[in-house]
Design a binder for these strands. Structure first.
Lengths: 110, 110
DNA sequence: CAGCTGCTTGGCTATATTGCCAAGTATGCA
DNA sequence: TGCATACTTGGCAATATAGCCAAGCAGCTG
């Protein structure tokens, strides 16, 4: 693994890591529909606002969302909408998983 | 966030989490080209074989790869090839990120 | 200016992840 | 049977992540 490849993989892993949390996925899905302020997202997630703020900071650092302060509130929106197309594929993983495990069992029983 | 939604998001986050490591991304990319045994992947990654074995276990648990023991060796292959299509999008995030940061700066300077 | 709301940041603890070494298991071969 | 190779697992230390509370900051509003 050379230096250039390592950098590329690190960068990609960073984006995936930012996405890899249920609360942050919820944020991404909601922002796909429409922009939202922190207080709305906080209510949806049902955690402390400081926690949600930190999640949003992670998404922002990863380049997935942008924020926009309007008066008292901060609105977040998706920066790269294609992110969510991916989940059709993730869903494929999840939906076929059960069958595969069955296969594995049948292999064991052969 | 109701129970059903939480389960769905947890499941998706788990898959993303499994992908969110540079070594595991390298594995996924290599397996997209062809199946590989643990020793080959270990050499590519350049870590201890026990470390690589644990990475592979994570990918397997997430339903991303399957393993196949042949004699002395264990071959791994991708279970869901579409996973890697996603990276075109991740790449978009990464490539446009720099410009966005410049924008952010210009906002600050306004 | 005082106080409220919306948000971020610091600090902390609990928990999870990573990676190495050492030890264990399974297969192949002399 | 004994030894080598390929791999997995346990255990450990270092590091990272998550979530809460408390404190701070910025922008409204009285």
């Amino acid at each position: 693994m050379d230096e250039k490849q390592k950098k590329r993989l690190d960068a990609r892993a960073k984006v995936l890591k930012a996405m890899a949390h249920p609360s942050r996925l919820l944020v991404l899905e909601e922002l796909e529909k429409q922009e939202r302020c922190v207080c709305e997202l906080t209510e949806m997630i049902g955690a402390d606002m400081s926690t949600v703020s930190k999640h949003l900071s992670v998404l922002k650092q990863a380049g997935l969302v942008i924020d926009d302060k309007r008066g008292n509130q901060v609105y977040y929106q998706l920066r790269v909408p294609c992110i969510l197309n991916f989940f059709d594929c993730v869903e494929t993983v999840l939906q076929t998983q059960h069958r595969e495990h069955a296969d594995t069992l049948s292999v064991v029983n052969r």
